[in-house]
């Protein structure tokens, strides 16, 4: 391990200042992703500013029915929080489907959002990677692509964002509260993560010393009937091949409103806006769900080796919507 300095931040502003002063500095929270990367040589910060003990671990209801989640709230605690379970079950389920119990106990809310995209070549410093070493080339293209993107990738990078939690938060239209030396600002989660384009080394729009202090979920009554479905290669401790976060509101057999986001398919949590447009106001039937899924996935550009993800995503979207519709008494539409 390359030697580095360590300091514990006194308060959020102190953390931001400490990181701003050193170009090679990084925030350390749960460490479940960063420490791995330190060991693998993927990253080599010269200063770690520990923000894990800052008082950012509260979960509080907001006026109007929303929820403010502190950046340092552990994944396990957030998943088990009674308000989350009641108002945003898709978020609780997404969290519980991620990683392992040990990792969820350590991982934080902000750290989960800011985990790096996942790719075996990115993690292996002996192979070229545009994300790790811009301009060196993408080893995944033409290589092992099973866990790689089918939407929004570029010729420079086909990695996917591995978070489950973020997919649910994307469906819920979360905002991220960011502290910088210029003060506090609000970044919609929709804008936080980037597509790789020609700069895959940047996973998010955040600048060097930007510190996430909280995530805010808007009030969304329909999310009380929501779910998260993760399809993976083993029952636990595996990244998603495809995942779906969804909330569905029915109005006399028609889709009133819907929230739909996909994981495991892109460099960022993928909001299925096209599918949502097809669904709103349409009859809540399996046929509609299929057409909506197909519309969303029309833009898919799978790699040789992960073509199956298109059908898997389509089937999973349909299954999740069918399940949610069934929960509204639309059981006759099953299969």
């Amino acid at each position: 391990m390359i030697p580095f300095d360590y300091r514990r931040a006194q308060d959020p502003a102190d953390a931001v200042t400490a990181v701003a002063e050193r170009p090679g500095a990084a925030f350390l929270a749960g460490g479940t992703n960063l420490v791995d990367h330190l060991k693998l040589g993927v990253t080599a910060p010269d200063l770690l500013v520990d923000v894990s003990r800052l008082p950012l671990d509260g979960v509080e209801s907001l006026p109007g029915g929303g929820l403010r989640i502190g950046a340092a709230v552990r994944n396990s605690d957030l998943a088990a929080h009674p308000v989350v379970r009641e108002r945003y079950p898709m978020l609780s389920r997404a969290l519980l489907s991620g990683a392992s119990g040990q990792l969820r106990n350590a991982a934080t809310t902000a750290g989960n959002l800011l985990q790096r995209t996942r790719c075996v070549y990115f993690q292996d410093v002996t192979t070229p990677c545009n994300k790790r070493d811009p301009g060196s080339g993408c080893s995944a293209i033409g290589g092992y692509t099973r866990y790689h993107a089918i939407l929004g990738a570029s010729e420079h990078c086909i990695a996917v964002h591995p978070s489950d939690m973020a997919v649910a938060m994307r469906a819920l239209d979360a905002d991220v509260i960011v502290l910088s030396q210029d003060g506090e600002r609000r970044v919609p989660l929709a804008d936080l993560h980037r597509l790789p384009g020609d700069a895959p080394h940047r996973d998010t729009v955040l600048d060097h010393a930007d510190l996430i202090t909280a995530v805010e979920l808007p009030a969304l009554p329909m999310a009380r009937r929501s779910t998260y479905r993760k399809v993976r290669d083993r029952a636990s401790y595996a990244f998603a091949l495809v995942s779906v976060a969804a909330a569905l509101e029915l109005d006399d057999g028609m889709v009133g409103d819907v929230r739909l986001a996909l994981g495991g398919v892109a460099h960022k949590p993928w909001r299925a806006s096209t599918a949502e447009e097809h669904l709103r106001g349409a009859p809540a039937t399996v046929e509609t769900f299929r057409r909506a899924a197909d519309a969303e996935l029309a833009a898919a550009q799978p790699q040789p080796g992960n073509e199956f993800k298109v059908r898997m995503a389509r089937n999973t979207i349909v299954a999740v919507l069918r399940e949610l519709a069934g929960a509204h008494g639309m059981g006759g539409e099953h299969r």
Binding site: D124, T126, T127, S139
Partner: peptide
């Protein structure tokens, strides 16, 4: 998973 371009077991 062996990447035959490099002979490397990538996973």
């Amino acid at each position: 998973v062996m990447d035959h371009r490099t002979g490397h077991v990538v996973n």
